[in-house]
Simulated scan of single mutants.
Amino acid sequence: MLEGLPPNGATHVMRVEAPEHEARAIADIISESFDPAEVATAAFEEQDLAEGASWAMEAYFGEAPDEDSVRDLIRLVAPDHADKAEFLTLDKKDWVASSLEGLAPVAIGRFVIHGAHDRDRLPPSRIGIEIEAALAFGTGHHGTTKGCLSAIAAYGKQRRPARTLDVGTGTGVLAMAAARLFHAPVVASDIDRVAVVTAQANAKANRAAPHIHFLHAPGLGAGEFRRQGPYDLIVANILLPPLKAIARPLRRLLAPGGTVVLSGLLPSHANAALAAYRAQGLRLKRRRDIEGWTTLELTADSGRNETPAGRR
Rank of each mutant, 00 (worst) to 15 (best):
H12N: 03
E20D: 08
P19T: 01
E22D: 08
E17W: 06
G9V: 11
E38A: 11
A18P: 09
V13A: 00
T11V: 12
A23R: 04
I29N: 07
E22P: 06
E22S: 07
T41D: 06
V16S: 01
D28V: 13
A23Q: 04
P36Q: 02
S31F: 11
V16T: 00
A10K: 10
A23V: 07
F44D: 00
Q47N: 10
I26G: 01
D35Q: 03
A37G: 13
P19W: 01
A10P: 03
Q47S: 12
H12Y: 14
A25C: 04
E32G: 11
E32I: 05
H12V: 09
P36G: 00
I26Q: 02
S31G: 09
S31T: 07
D28E: 15
G9E: 06
A42V: 14
E22R: 11
P7C: 11
A27C: 07
V39R: 04
G9T: 07
E46D: 14
A23S: 09
H12Q: 04
A40P: 00
H12K: 04
E32F: 15
D48P: 05
F34L: 05
A23L: 08
E17Q: 14
R15P: 00
V39E: 02
H21T: 14
S33Y: 11
E46A: 15
T11I: 13
F34T: 05
D35M: 03
H21Q: 15
M14V: 05
E45A: 13
P7M: 13
S31D: 07
A25M: 06
D28R: 15
F34G: 03
D35G: 04
A43V: 08
A27H: 07
T41F: 13
E17Y: 03
A10Y: 13
A43D: 06
A25N: 04
I26N: 01
A43F: 12
F44S: 02
P36T: 00
A37N: 10
Q47K: 14
A23N: 03
A40L: 09
A18D: 09
A37K: 07
Q47M: 11
Q47Y: 10
D48M: 13
T11N: 01
N8L: 14
A27S: 10
A40R: 09
I29K: 10
A43E: 03
G9I: 11
G9Q: 09
D35W: 07
A10C: 12
R15T: 02
A18F: 09
E38Q: 15
I30N: 02
A37V: 05
V13D: 00
E46G: 09
E22C: 06
I29C: 09
D35C: 06
A37C: 08
D48V: 12
E17V: 10
P19S: 02
G9H: 08
S31Q: 14
D48F: 13
E46K: 14
F34R: 05
E17M: 12
R24E: 11
F34N: 03
E17L: 09
P36C: 01
G9D: 04
P19D: 01
D28Y: 15
A42M: 15
E32R: 15
F34Q: 03
I30Y: 06
V39N: 01
E46V: 12
E38H: 15
A18S: 10
A25R: 08
A27W: 10
A40N: 05
H12G: 01
N8F: 15
